[in-house]
Amino acid sequence: MSKIEFTNLQILRVAMGAWFFGWFIRFQYFKTYLFTFIERYPITFDFFPGFLQQGEVSMVVFFLPILIVPALQIPSQRRMIVASMTLLVTATISMLHLDTYNDATNVTCFWSAIWLLWFSVNCHRTDVAFRTQARFLVQLIVTVIFVGGFVGKITPAYLSGQAWFEMFMSKDSYFFGSVLRGLIDADPRLLSRYLSWGMIFAEGCMGLMILVPYRLGAICASVLMLLMLLMSNTVLILSVLGCLIGMMLSLLMWRDIDLEGDR
């Protein structure tokens, strides 16, 4: 195995490990949700096919990624392909299941799993073209995901800060808001407007990721996503962002390999 092939497998391990970490950071929440509420209080909605309304399906699918642990421990191309497919099935079913469809984690994990599968299938490649394509696809995925959030907030409720106030600032549990109010003597609605603008600006910047050289973009995007973690007030947001941070940072492992135009 060449040095580059070895590095490619390590990249997969890091990216897949971040996916895995992000997915299971919701374990505490899901443990209660799946085994208390879904089990005891089943809800049906005929818009969804029968299979995608069954609570047992969402329970099994949530734990399916455990199957990739052997691939993370002893990676090989074949194991990584099977592991990526497992993650793709997991994210796809979760994205379409009545119990879980709304969780943004599923969409980011879906696109990350597609990238992992593509990377796994090609991870024997040592050519520069493969590396530039891998970087481009990561940037395109991040761009598409954040453009979605950015565009969806170009509406009066977010621009005025009302949505932010109603969803976060008016709640006692919004720790970041409480800290800000302690530091700045300002109207909470005004603070909400600035925070809302801040989030729109951050998502807009992330949406421009495709127009930034890879290394600079990956570092800036990771810092911005960690700031989003602070603003959103819940560590669970790492389930949405963890796979993206993992993908972006994992490709920095190619730093010792000269890439034309990016030394």
Binding site: D127, V128, A129, F136, Q139, P213, Y214, E260, G261, D262
Partner: peptide
């Protein structure tokens, strides 16, 4: 330096 440009200009499969 943009991957967007590199991936369509670098020769390869």
């Amino acid at each position: 330096k943009l991957p967007l440009v590199q991936c369509f200009t670098v020769q390869g499969r």
